[in-house]
Design a protein around this nucleic acid. Structure first.
Lengths: 348, 348
DNA sequence: CGGGATGGTCGAACCGGTTCGACAGGGGTG
DNA sequence: CACCCCTGTCGAACCGGTTCGACCATCCCG
C-alpha cells in the first residue's frame, strides 16, 4: 500500500496525493475527498523511511543513556518517561542509545547513519567528549545537565551547587555541626560527573561558610553500598549527627545503616539531600529533600530540542532549575544529649 | 557524503561500493582496500533511512510502554535497560512507544509507517487488544507477560500464579493464618493485567489449600497508597500477621504503615511478595521475595524477537520463569502473643 | 478583450541506498 | 579449441516518498 497505489485508485497522480496529504499546494475539495476515501479504505500510512529519505527529517530524537551503564537510578526512569511523553506530544519518536556499552559505535549509528534529527544527553560530565563531539559536528543536542562550559551548549540543568548548599544551611539552622556528605560512586566522580562535582562543591563551600565539620564520601549506587557507607561514616566520626546525599539509590541502605546503629531519624540523626520526590516518599521517615523535578526537566529538554530543530541557527538556550527543599520528616534539631549507642528496635 | 561520492573518489561504480560493504558479491582485494581508504578518510556511514527503504529492514525494534502511563515502576526500568542493551548486542536500536497516551496513534506510527521491524510489549493484559492486533497483522512481536491465550503468542513471562502461591506456602509454613494480599491498582486489575490476575489467583487458591483466612486489596503504585492500604488492612482485621505484595512501588509505604502501627517486621508481622531484587534490598529489613529477574527477561525477549525476525514463519516460542523465593529478613514465625498495639518507636 | 494572477494537476527528478541482469576476461574441462 | 563457469565490475531499476517546473483553466482587472 504505497502512495502510487493510492494515486491509481483515486485516479490522480502520486504528487497530487502527496500534496493532498501535506497541504503544501492547493488541492480541490473533490479530489481531496476522493483521495481521503481511498486512504481510509486501505488504511494507508506513508512509509517513514521513504519520507525521511526524501526530506531529511526522521522525526525521531535520540535519548543518549548514561555512560555508567551497569544500572539505572529512579531519576533516570523519570527522565526517560517524561522525554518520551513530551516527544510524543510534538510528534517525535524517541530512540534509546546506550552510550555506555560502546560509545563510538552507538554515536555513529545515531549521527553518522542519520537515525535521529537531534539528541538529548543524560548524565553529563564537566568535560564531556560526547558534548564536544556533537558541538563540533553542529548536531542539534540538548543536555540534561551542564558541562564546564555551559554557555556554548543547549541544556536544562539543576543547580546542584545551590541545592547542596541549601541542604547544608537547613541542617546548620537546625544546629547540626558535624555533617557527612554522601556522593555518587567514586568512579562517576572521577569521570567528572557534573552533579557529583557541583554538589560536592556547594556542600563544601556552604559548610565552610557555616563553620561545620564535615567528611565527604563516595558511595555505590545501591542499597548495600549505602549501608556500608553509613557504617564508615559513624566509624570515622561517631559524633556525626546529619548527612546530605545526592545518591538516591543508596538512600534505603543509608537508612538501614542508621537503624542498625540505633540512630533514630530524625531524633538522633538528620538526613537530607537531592532526590526525586517519588523516592523521597518511599523511605520512612519520608525524606526532607530538594526534589529533583525530573518530569519537568525531561519535558523542558524536549521543548528546547524541538525549538532548536525548528530554527537551526538560534543561539544556545538553557534553563537552570533550583527547586526548594520540601520539608518532610527526616530532619530535626540536633539532640541535646549524645546519641544512645543502641536502640531497642534493631534487627539481629 | 553518500555512496555516490565514495564511488566517484574510489573510481568505481556505486554498486561496487555497496558490494564491498555488504560482501554479497565478491570484490577484488585491490578495489576493496581502495574503497575502504576513501570511506575512512571521509568518515562515511550509509544512511539508515535509505537503507531501510531499499531493503525493508529498519534494524530497529519498538518497545511498547505500559498503557498505564502516569508513572513507571522500578521493574519497568530494569526491563527497558536490559532490552536496550541486549538489542545493541544484536545491532538493533530501540524505539520507545508510549502506548498509554494515544494507543492507536502510536501503534500506527510503529506499524503503519514501518518504523520498526518488530516489537516488544510490556505490561500485558489477559485480553490484550494490542496483542490481538499485532497477531492479526502478523507483525513480529514478543510479549513480556502472557495473555489468556498464551499458545498463540511469543512471550517471556513470569509464573505469577506459582510465585504468589510460593509466598503463601512460605508464610503458612511459618505458621501465619491471617494473611493479606496487596495487588496492583484497582484500575489495572479491572483492565485485566495478567500479573495482577494470575497473582491473585495463585494467592487465593494456595490460601484456600492451606486453609488460611485472607483478605485481598488493590493499592496505588506509590508509597502513600501503600501506607493507606496497610492502615485498611489492620483496620479490617487487626489480627492479620502477614502480607504478600505484587506492588513494588507501594512497598515503602507498606513498611511505613507497619512502623506507624507499631508492628515490627518480622517479629510481629511478615512481609513477602514478588519484587525485583534491587528494590527488595532497599527496604529495611530486606524483603524476602520472589525476585523478578527483569534483566534476564528483557534479554530473553530480545533474543526471541531476533529469532523471530530471522525466520518469520517459525512457530511461537515462549519462556516461563519461576524464580525461587530469596530468603532475606522480612518474614519469620508468627508470634505466640498478640501483637502490641503501639511501639515506642513511632513518629508523631 | 487581452494579460497576469491564481488554482489545480501532472510528470519527472531526486533522496541514498540495494540488487538484478549483463558482460568482460581468465581458467579449467572435455 | 570450444565451451562453460567463476570472478569482478557496471549500469539500470527499484524502494516510496517529496518537490520543482510546466501546463491548462478560470477569473479578475484595467
Amino acid at each position: 500500500m504505497n502512495i502510487g497505489e493510492i494515486a491509481k485508485r483515486a485516479g490522480v497522480s502520486r504528487s497530487t496525493v502527496s500534496y493532498a496529504l501535506s497541504g503544501k499546494r492547493p488541492v480541490s475539495n473533490d479530489t481531496r475527498e476522493k483521495i481521503q476515501r481511498v486512504i481510509d479504505d486501505l488504511g494507508y500510512r506513508p512509509n517513514a523511511s521513504a519520507r525521511a529519505l526524501a526530506n531529511g527529517r526522521t522525526r525521531t530524537i535520540g535519548l543518549v543513556f548514561p555512560p555508567a551503564g551497569d544500572h539505572y537510578t529512579g531519576m533516570q526512569l523519570d527522565f526517560i518517561g517524561s522525554v518520551v511523553e513530551a516527544a510524543a506530544a510534538y510528534d517525535y519518536d524517541v530512540l534509546l542509545s546506550p552510550s555506555g556499552v560502546d560509545r563510538d559505535r552507538s554515536f555513529q549509528r545515531l549521527l553518522g547513519e542519520r537515525r535521529v534529527d537531534g539528541a538529548i544527553l543524560m548524565e553529563i560530565r564537566l568535560q564531556d567528549d560526547r558534548v564536544d563531539h556533537l558541538l563540533a559536528a553542529h548536531f542539534p543536542a540538548v543536555c540534561i545537565g551542564r558541562t564546564a562550559q555551559p554557555e556554548r551548549d543547549w541544556w536544562v540543568g539543576l543547580d546542584h551547587t545551590v541545592l547542596a548548599a541549601a541542604c547544608v544551611h537547613h541542617l546548620a539552622d537546625l544546629g547540626h555541626r558535624r555533617v557527612a556528605f554522601v556522593n555518587r560512586p567514586e568512579r562517576l566522580l572521577r569521570a567528572g560527573y557534573e552533579s557529583a562535582h557541583r554538589g560536592l562543591d556547594g556542600f563544601t563551600k556552604a559548610a565552610a561558610e557555616r563553620g561545620l565539620t564535615v567528611r565527604t564520601y563516595t558511595c555505590g549506587d545501591d542499597a548495600p553500598s549505602g549501608q556500608a557507607c553509613l557504617e564508615r561514616i559513624l566509624h570515622d566520626d561517631p559524633a556525626t549527627t546529619a548527612l546530605v546525599t545526592l545518591n538516591e539509590a543508596a538512600l534505603g541502605g543509608l537508612y538501614r545503616g542508621l537503624a542498625h546503629a540505633g540512630r533514630h531519624v530524625p531524633r538522633d540523626f538528620s538526613v537530607t539531600g537531592v532526590v526525586a520526590a517519588r523516592w523521597a516518599e518511599t523511605v520512612t521517615p519520608q525524606l526532607t529533600a530538594a526534589d529533583v523535578p525530573a518530569a519537568q526537566m525531561g519535558r523542558l529538554a524536549v521543548e528546547l530540542l524541538v525549538e532548536r530543530l525548528d530554527q537551526p541557527d538560534a543561539p544556545p538556550r538553557h534553563q537552570l532549575l533550583a527547586p526548594p527543599i520540601s520539608l518532610r520528616a527526616s530532619t530535626g534539631p540536633v539532640g541535646t544529649v549524645a546519641p544512645v549507642s543502641a536502640g531497642s528496635d534493631v534487627n539481629a
